[in-house]
Amino acid sequence: MKTRRYGIIDRQKRRMLIPFLLPALVLYGAITLYPGISTFYMSVMDWGGVGDPVFIGLDNFTRLVRDPTLIKAAGNTFFYVVVGGFILFPLAITFALATKSLRRGKLYRFLILAPIALSVTTAALLWKFAFNPNFGFVGDVFAALGLEALSSWEWLGEPSTALFIVVLASVWHGIGIWMLFFISAIERVPPELREAAILDGANAFQVFRHITFPLIWEMTRTLIILWIIQASQAFGFIIAMTNGGPLGATEVIGTYLYKQAFVQFEYGYAAAVAIVLSLVVVTLTVISRRIGRRGEGVEY
């Protein structure tokens, strides 16, 4: 009886299939998927943007494993994703917890969120100026704090520190929204659980470790995947802030891809790089999901 009723409903619902799927499929197919698929086609071609592409098999791919700039860029991308993630997530969670428990929390939240209101490339351009040794204010701040060595350091001019500064600047710019997601997750943790734990004598860290964290873990996993997808394709902020320099220290796959396609007109090669980037994203995503499953995801 029950199954039959489902059968009728399902049949009714199936009539909705086409009208429900069609708008998304048409738009997605024409505007996202089709250009994406032609990227695969391009990757086996030698094409400079005009004229007929020439089939060259896997030459673009064998070229990229021998391309020292790309290999360096891949390492930098990994650094950006991993170091950025390790700064972003703990900080965002800390901000979420701290602003929730403190008075004036909303003011803090507003100020942490505020940088997102600045457009990405312009914010990057202005950070470049802030770090300028002659006209920026970062050196002045260190000097005022009495940190002479730091005030004369060329943060963006030294290959050893430039990438780290770019990571910090982009985390500064975007962290607010990640904090908001964690606030909402923490709000959903039933207060009774925390109170019970506190009555049992748990300290704040223990409450977080054993109550809050397991309950927000599921959402954290999704956010980590979002971060990986977003960070591994990052380029706008970096192009505007350092353009990949000094000496390639901040070149990531995204910026390299942009330069190959748009400055060098090496479309075929750029397509191959784009595909490798997609593979990297997929791999990182899968790995992070695996790791995530080992964690203690608790439904609530």
Partner: peptide, 21 residues
């Protein structure tokens, strides 16, 4: 221009008709 800040990226595609020569 060659290294410009925040310019766009274009990855060409065969799918578009090669311009007339």
């Amino acid at each position: 221009w060659a290294v410009a800040a925040g310019a766009a990226l274009a990855l060409g595609l065969t799918a578009c008709a090669p311009p007339s020569t």
